[in-house]
């Protein structure tokens, strides 16, 4: 009988264990202790957080520049571009762009005369951009007599309002700044290259030195100091005009450009809303 009782006691205890009530109580106590410890450790956690974030990216003091108070626009005048390539060199030097990569470049379009009696207005279009235009352009491979017309087109990031490159970034490392610049946060970019493929203008590249996506920053370090971007500063023929739509200066060259020209954007059909205004584009330019 007593044996039976002890046996049934064992059974009951094991049943209790099986229901998990003991384990639950322990857990509750443990989590209570955890919460108390957590509250006690909060200052330490803050320090840890600061340390973690410092490790991820260094924070610097903010400048006197408020990005919400500006809206930059770049204008490129194809009829003014003389293809000297100075802008490309200026950009390379200003931004330490690795050799063979370009944040801006110049393309030479050579449109040949149509075949006689072909009934066409123009012949084949030959586009070249040897080394992005650095050092200027050598005479074209197309003989002078064959050329119907020819011109230079400066290219750069189109500073899209609805930028495809920022939409595909999986880590939020590239973004449209409130002032219109499209920038890459090098500390958070994982170098996956999605943005490089997404850009319909081919304006991004993978920087082999930083192992991140790289692109025109609109010389952000210059415009925030009140200077013009390097390409605009160095361009000898005012083919590049840069200005702030929110703070127009007296006799603003940008406003004059927009008023006096028929302004176009590249690949308007894509709906990217470029903030680079072109004047004098030919239909062959893409």
């Amino acid at each position: 009988m007593s044996e039976n009782a002890s046996q049934s006691g064992v059974v009951r205890r094991s049943q209790t264990a099986a229901t998990g009530e003991n384990v639950t109580r322990r857990r509750v106590l443990k989590s209570l202790a955890g919460i108390t410890a957590g509250i006690l450790a909060l200052p330490a956690a803050r320090m840890c957080k600061a340390a973690v974030q410092n490790g991820l990216a260094s924070a610097d003091s903010p400048p006197g520049y408020d990005p919400t108070q500006h809206k930059w626009l770049m204008a490129l005048d194809v009829d003014r571009c003389i293809g000297c390539g100075m802008c490309v060199e200026a950009c390379q030097a200003e931004n330490s762009v690795p050799q063979g990569f370009f944040r801006t470049w110049i393309e030479r379009y050579v449109i040949k005369k149509p075949e006689p009696e072909s009934g066409k207005t123009r012949g084949e279009t030959v586009v070249d951009s040897t080394n992005g235009g650095i050092g200027g352009f050598k005479p074209s491979a197309v003989a002078k007599e064959q050329i119907l017309k020819s011109f230079f087109v400066p290219k750069m990031c189109n500073l899209c309002e609805h930028s495809p490159c920022t939409q595909v970034c999986p880590v939020g490392a590239t973004f449209d700044a409130p002032d219109g610049a499209v920038l890459v946060d090098k500390n958070y970019c994982i170098g996956c290259g999605f943005c490089i493929q997404a850009c319909p203008y081919g304006c991004r590249f993978f920087n082999p030195e930083t192992h991140t996506a790289d692109k025109c920053t609109l010389c952000y370090h210059r415009i925030t100091r009140g200077l013009k971007p390097a390409c605009v500063e160095i361009c000898p023929s005012q083919a590049r005009i840069f200005g702030d739509l929110k703070n127009p200066v007296t006799d603003d060259p940008l406003q004059r450009f927009i008023t006096n020209n028929k302004v176009e954007e590249l690949k308007a059909n894509l709906g990217t809303g470029p903030r680079v205004a072109y004047a004098g584009l030919d239909e062959v330019v893409r």
Binding site: Q53, L56, A57, S58, A59, D60, S61, P62, P63, Y65, P67, T68, A90, A93, E94, N95, G172, A173, T174, F175, D176, A177, P178, L183, D185, K186, N187, Y188, T217, C219, Y220, H221, R222, T224, R225, L227, K228, A230, E233, I234
Partner: peptide
């Protein structure tokens, strides 16, 4: 990061970091 969401879905401090470079051309 602390400055995340300051202007949008990205780190606001990145703007300052990008602007920290020294200009090369004096103007």
């Amino acid at each position: 990061p602390p400055s995340f969401g300051e202007y949008g879905h990205y780190r606001g401090a990145a703007l300052q970091e990008i602007a920290n470079r020294e200009p090369f051309w004096a103007g």
